[in-house]
């Protein structure tokens, strides 16, 4: 077992040394492809963050005034309860409202963490108890926008209502940009990924062609196909892995620079939500590593199989 492992590693390393130029080209191509794939995914995520509060068909958000810091807790609790009762009574009276949900302090905090990920100063202020709670209103499908505006105007004047947001215009713009950017970068990354697989495939094919005599001898003395194939597959897998590692490093760097840049933007620029949280970044990096290794192993596996028919 140890002898086989030593053989596989020796052969893989030897093949790398013999094919340095092609190997480097394959690694760079796969790194660029995976980087673009990662960036696409980040951009999509940024846009998704922007529209998080509008998920599930929410068209209108009614923000409730935050607690008065100078009043006692009992007074604030009573004020909130009164405001909610008035707002719910008004919403219940509208025939075109399908349903609404109350987004309490915890729910609002979750939204704020996403929307203001790139604006830590404002986020800190909100998390100190200033975060406004809200109602997310889902109208019946096909409701006229004029009716929604009339309802909003009526709500605006109610006690405890701080502000009202409409989804329609905002979602429309964000979706158009998201679809445009997402579609073209996704196509580009898929094309580059295919190019990377083909380049890895070609690298392995060249390596095998150079060693066809050796492979013939191996076959004739009784080596199994897998024994012959594994060093080549490992070579492809390492190429994919190194490319993916490069892509992850570049992605991390770009995301760090972006996050640092967003923090300097004006608070009302609306871009704070486009910062990618570290959990998402980590999960995408793992995915990129898996895709890189799989693409390398599959490309080289196919190339290797073509020379084994002896």
């Amino acid at each position: 077992m140890l002898a086989r492992l030593s053989y596989v590693l020796r052969e893989t390393w030897g093949s790398f040394r013999r094919n340095v130029t092609l190997t480097v080209a394959a690694i760079i191509t796969s790194a660029v492809a995976l980087l673009i794939f990662g960036l696409t995914s980040f951009v999509q995520r940024g846009f998704d963050n922007l529209v998080t509060v509008w998920e599930g068909g929410v068209e209108v958000i009614v923000y409730i005034s935050p607690a008065d810091p100078e009043a006692t807790d009992e007074v604030n609790v009573q004020a909130l309860a009164d405001a909610r009762a008035i707002i719910e009574e008004s919403l219940d009276s509208q025939p075109f409202i399908e349903n609404y949900t109350y987004c309490d302090a915890a729910c609002s905090q979750r939204d704020a963490e996403i929307l203001l990920a790139g604006d830590p100063t404002t986020l800190d202020l909100l998390l100190a108890g200033e975060v406004p709670t809200s109602y997310k209103v889902i109208p019946v499908a096909g409701t006229d926008s004029q009716e929604l505006q009339n309802m909003s105007q009526a709500l605006q004047g109610l006690p405890g209502v701080r502000s009202i947001l409409y989804a329609a215009d905002f979602i429309d713009v964000v979706s158009k940009v998201k679809n445009f950017v997402g579609l073209y970068t996704l196509i580009l990354s898929i094309l580059l990924l295919v190019a990377a697989i083909l380049l890895i495939w070609n690298t392995i094919r060249t390596a095998m062609f150079a060693r066809r005599r050796e492979i013939e001898v191996m076959k004739l003395v009784g080596a199994t196909d897998w024994f012959i194939r594994v060093p080549f597959m490992l070579e492809g897998l390492i190429q994919g892995f190194v490319g993916a590692l490069g892509a992850c490093g570049a992605l991390w760097l770009i995301n760090n620079r972006w996050t640092a840049g967003v923090e300097t933007f004006p608070p009302d620029s609306g871009l704070a939500a486009m910062v990618i949280d570290s959990d998402f970044q980590f999960s995408r990096m793992v995915l990129i590593l898996v895709i890189g290794m799989a693409a390398g192993a599959i490309g080289s596996g196919i190339a290797a199989s073509r020379f084994l028919d002896i």
Partner: peptide, 8 residues
């Protein structure tokens, strides 16, 4: 080599 590839 002939022995190595059959795992001797």
């Amino acid at each position: 080599f002939a022995q190595e590839v059959i795992g001797k």
